[in-house]
Design a protein around this nucleic acid. Sequence first.
DNA 1: GTCTATAATATGATAGAC
DNA 2: GTCTATCATATTATAGAC
Lengths: 242, 242
Amino acid sequence: MEWKSTLEPREDVLRAAGWLFTTQGYTSTSTREIAAAAGLRQGSLFHYFKRKRDILAELLDRTVDFPMGLHARLAEMNLEPEVKLYLLSRGDVSNILAGAHNLGALTLLPEVRTGEFASFWEKRSQVRDAYRVLIEAGIASNVLDDLELDLATDLVFGLIESTITWFDRSSMRGREEVAEATASAALRVVLRDSGDLDRIRQAANLPGDWVVRSGASKDGESPSPAASRLLPIRSARQGHRA
Amino acid sequence: MEWKSTLEPREDVLRAAGWLFTTQGYTSTSTREIAAAAGLRQGSLFHYFKRKRDILAELLDRTVDFPMGLHARLAEMNLEPEVKLYLLSRGDVSNILAGAHNLGALTLLPEVRTGEFASFWEKRSQVRDAYRVLIEAGIASNVLDDLELDLATDLVFGLIESTITWFDRSSMRGREEVAEATASAALRVVLRDSGDLDRIRQAANLPGDWVVRSGASKDGESPSPAASRLLPIRSARQGHRA
DNA sequence: GTCTATAATATGATAGAC
DNA sequence: GTCTATCATATTATAGAC
């Protein structure tokens, strides 16, 4: 299997950088490597991104687009908070596991956790807040246990995102299977009676699986990691001499 | 509050590097920075460590010492598997949160996840296996739900270690409070009847709190992060000229 | 829009004086 | 055991030709 260029150099750069940043780290990845993997020369990167960190910033912003959209769609639906919590969790995990390269891992880069990238962290805290509000409502209606709200939110959100660190894309386990199991586990953490889980799962499947489908990254554009590390997406462009 | 030298330069180097690696990342931290924070000159580092990565390797190895020891001590005790699982989880989290700098975050560095540092990953997989065996036994005795074993292990272990990413050392929340809540949450993920939790908690407190205490890093050597970033632990050594 | 060439700087590691 | 000095190399970003 081989990379295919989007014919959009800018997208090729983002895809190459996404792969390299998540596997090697930000500082360890040189602009030369990114350019080579995108079929460009080092200097040409700066036609599309003024600085290296702008590439990272754009990739980071994209990681929150899906959960934000999912949250917005759920907000318009008439469902119990615990059912929404299940659907948000399952969709969020499914999306995290979806792409070819583990983009969620960008969040864990030390360079990202330094107070820079404030606009990203702002959006991200809105995602956390979506969880928090649902948990709060579930506690109010007595379906969820009366735990300290912020601690419960950290535990649930932490469990969801832990999939970033342990899911193995080369394993046999299916993405939807893991998403389902993780969402169920998240609910068990906060549920007063874990026997409610069956009811919640059923209620979640009634609206159809549109929630999971509608915004998730398309599969199938997975590169062969081993190959893509060395080969450029496409051969170098015309220019004077390659 | 101010750093105090151990008078053991080698330990000072490790402490400084631990702080810098976890906050800035490995590649982003220069040997000059480490040396300065440890009260040495750049070249002098290489008297204690042949290469930069040896500093990281030693720090990594130390992060598994505590859970390995705890596991060994629990193995000798006569307790139900679910009680051991609770004690292992609580002690593990308590230790993760204990040190002044979030050493667990070293595990998440992209440079560490590249197949190098094999001896560390070997030991780490033994820790995961300790969880796995306890979960397996709990399923066999019908106290834990009959989930797929490896998936359940990933969820539990992932939840435990998620504290690395979300616990805020500057917050008001106490370390033992979070350890207790996280261990309880981990059990709820796998417990057949979450009503068992009270019994487990009580059984866990009978052997005394020796498990949590005996090996945990001593608190109180916390540096002021803001200050320590710029100030050396101690002023430069005698040498010819500083 | 892509290339080549280069500036300005930072890096890990070594050699050798004391 | 610590320092100074230095080597060889790699880095991001810019300038200017085509």
